[in-house]
């Protein structure tokens, strides 16, 4: 059970991508703003990311990808969330993702994508305005 009322986010790196500057900066900005943040560490498989999200009972996954594998890994995580009955976990993310791909991923169910030049203030605002801490009444 999480501390009441605090949004809980799993920040994740999936695939073989080692670029962790962005994910760490965002994780820290979210944490400094009072959001509960768990970081997966590098080189996780989509299965590991989803398992961690379910186990940690998070409200959202923030996935960072700078490897060009976004059109494979984002949809894979969406599928796994559905098959794990965890479709209520919101998936958002960021990285070097060209505009046409951003549009396609959003259509597929990724809630928001932050591309190069994004401000952590905007990311924090977005998380606060669009995520709600899950009610655990029935849990």
């Amino acid at each position: 059970m999480t501390e009441s009322g605090r949004i809980r986010v799993l920040m994740a790196k999936a695939g073989l991508d080692g670029h962790d500057r962005g994910v760490k900066v965002v994780a820290r900005a979210l944490r400094d703003s009072g959001i509960e943040v768990i970081y997966t560490g590098l080189h996780q498989t989509p299965e590991q990311v989803v398992a961690a999200a379910v186990q940690e009972d998070v409200d959202a996954i923030g996935l960072s990808l700078l490897s060009g594998a976004h059109m494979t890994i984002f949809p894979r995580i969406l599928d796994l969330l559905k098959s794990e009955d965890a479709g209520d976990i919101v998936l958002f993310g960021g990285g070097t993702i060209p505009d046409p791909d951003v549009a396609e991923l959003k259509k597929a169910g990724v809630a928001e994508l932050f591309t190069p030049g994004s401000s952590t203030l905007d990311i924090v605002d977005w998380v606060r305005n669009n995520l709600q801490h899950k009610s655990h009444a029935s849990a």
Partner: peptide, 18 residues
Amino acid sequence: DNPTLMGMDSDDPRSFGE
């Protein structure tokens, strides 16, 4: 590419998409 950098072949499941 990333699989080569990590010492993996293109047919390893962890290489998919990369």
